[in-house]
Nucleic acid binder design. Structure first.
Length: 360
DNA sequence: AACACGGGGTA
DNA sequence: TACCCAGTGTT
């Protein structure tokens, strides 16, 4: 139909007039495009931009990233969230650097075999770096297509995923996937926003959702997930110079990030005694000779849970704090700030309290 | 198909 | 508060 035939021309015209100058649009290097796409998963351009600059500066090539220590990669990712992205990034960099001698797969299908690359990212890299005729479908594309063509199939259903992908592929002009995909996402990000100004929209007169006054109802997304309440109670034992630290390894939030000795509970702990009872190594190789200096509390609201974070600051007079075979180790306070990646809430704690602790 | 996974911006 | 963001991996 004619509306659909004109769609790409109208979109590209808008794009040429409105597009932002973003660094990953000025390269064809698959490595940099891949890096930008991983960073931008579920992340706004403005938030991801400084991280992209940091990574390309520290790791100009995939080999540089592959050869970096994992703790260093996690530290560069600190504060960006969804930390499995950083682990998969590093893991895939090693694979590409070694077994593929630095050359990324050049098709969407093969790209999806890499950890951290799903349908969206594979199509993005394949189109931006290799001009493959595959359409990207992300949150922006859902908004744009559901509204202009009045598609109310839930975007996160199996049927919806197939439908939006097929529609986007149909609209894509052969041989121009890179520009078209950039334009679709830019249009969703700048014009067809969750609460858009339709008075300046180039599709206003052909937009089916606008004609039916259904802009605010589209796209349709099925939701669930109630917020969970968690109490993370930390004991920070230090001697003014070093402190005890451990790395999170469970299938849970903050995997591979560092934290102090932890006792998690489902309600506010009775007191420090509860921590001392429940943190196992305290009965063993960790020194029990300490005094509580201070207590710091903070409520951290995440998308799917509310974290009550309590930190008891304990000073030990002993030169050695002890350690154990439970992955607990001594780290200098300097390294806690500069070397190890911490969850944002603990990073905030350190920033607030670091000077107090070292000056005692 | 349903969940888990972060942190920050916006209305 | 609720929703959203250049989504992916696991169960």
């Amino acid at each position: 139909m004619s509306d659909e035939n004109n769609f790409d021309k109208r979109l590209l015209k808008w794009y040429e007039r409105t597009k932002r100058d973003l660094p990953w649009r000025n390269t064809r290097d698959p490595y940099r495009i891949w890096l930008s796409e991983i960073i931008l998963q579920q992340t706004r351009v403005e938030q991801g931009l400084p991280y992209y600059r940091r990574f390309t500066e520290n790791y100009p090539t995939v080999h540089d990233l592959a050869n970096a220590p994992e703790d260093e990669v996690m530290k560069l990712w600190e504060g960006l969230g969804y930390y499995s992205r950083a682990r998969n990034l590093h893991s895939s960099a090693k694979l590409v650097s070694s077994t593929m001698s630095g050359a990324f797969p050049d098709s969407s299908e093969q790209l999806q075999e890499l950890k951290g690359i799903g349908p969206y990212t594979a199509n993005a890299i394949a189109s931006f770096a290799f001009d493959e005729d595959v359409a990207v479908v992300d949150g922006n594309v859902h908004r744009v297509l559901s509204r202009i063509f009045n598609v109310s199939t839930p975007v996160n259903s199996t049927k919806g995923k197939a439908e939006f992908q097929a529609l986007a592929n149909k609209l894509l002009p052969t041989g121009h996937s890179a520009e078209f995909n950039q334009a679709m996402m830019e249009f969703g990000a700048l014009q067809c926003k969750p609460a858009p100004d339709c008075t300046i929209c180039p599709f206003a007169e052909m937009c089916e959702a606008k004609a039916q006054d259904k802009i605010s109802e589209l796209p349709v997304k099925e939701r669930k997930q109630a917020k969970k309440m968690r109490y993370l109670n930390y004991l920070m034992i230090h001697n003014g110079e070093r402190t005890l630290l451990q790395k999170r390894t469970n299938k849970d939030i903050w995997q591979n990030l560092h934290e102090f000795l932890l006792h998690e509970s489902s309600s506010e702990p009775a007191g420090i005694e509860e921590l001392i009872t429940n943190i196992k190594p305290l009965q063993g190789p960790i020194t029990s000779d300490f005094s509580i200096d201070d207590r710091w509390s903070s409520k951290h609201i995440l998308s799917h849970q509310i974290l009550h974070v309590n930190v008891w600051i304990a000073r030990s007079p002993q030169a050695s704090l002890g350690s154990s075979n439970d992955g607990i180790f001594e780290a200098s306070l300097d390294d806690v700030v500069n070397k190890y990646a911490l969850p944002v809430v603990l990073k905030r704690f350190v920033e607030e309290k670091y000077k107090d602790i070292v000056s005692q």
